[in-house]
Amino acid sequence: MLPIESQKTSQIRFMLNGEETDVSFAPYKTLLEILREDLGHTGTKHGCELGECGACAVLLDGKPVLSCLVLALECGGKQVLTVEGLGEDGGLHPLQDAFADLGAAQCGYCTPAILVTAKALLDQNPHPTRDQIREAISGNLCRCTGYLQIFEAVEAAMLKIAGQKTSAT
């Protein structure tokens, strides 16, 4: 067995929440591990590290993926968005506001992953139906809420974003 102490480190450069980021890390690490352990981005959580709970979801080039199953080595040059990058101009993203107001976060542990997943949904489909919301977050287990307040928060954010767009044009 090769002791891990003898391993070399690897480096990548990627865009983390819009910022060019260089990181060196042990090459066996996943995106989840470098975010939390090497880059201090602990907003991304983990509940199994096997792709079975959804708590570690981040956006990779705009698409929700499970950071526990993405090799950090494969992230060079990619765009990664985590909950830390969700807010806009120092304020909260409409999804964050709606989740906070409508009880969509209880313990808050599955919340960051659901927020980024919901953001990807609204980016791609600004007016999802309840069933489409249900489907989009079906890879994120929540043990606290029973999901209903989460659905409503996504719907409230959807209306707010649509309203902002209308008033902007």
């Binding site: 602990t42 907003g43 808050g108 542990y109």
Partner: peptide
């Protein structure tokens, strides 16, 4: 809005493993 909501929706709630 619960008092700890902002921390929770920004991922800043510090759980033990954080």
């Amino acid at each position: 809005r619960r008092v700890d909501a902002r921390a929770k929706v920004t991922g800043q709630t510090r759980f033990a493993d954080d």
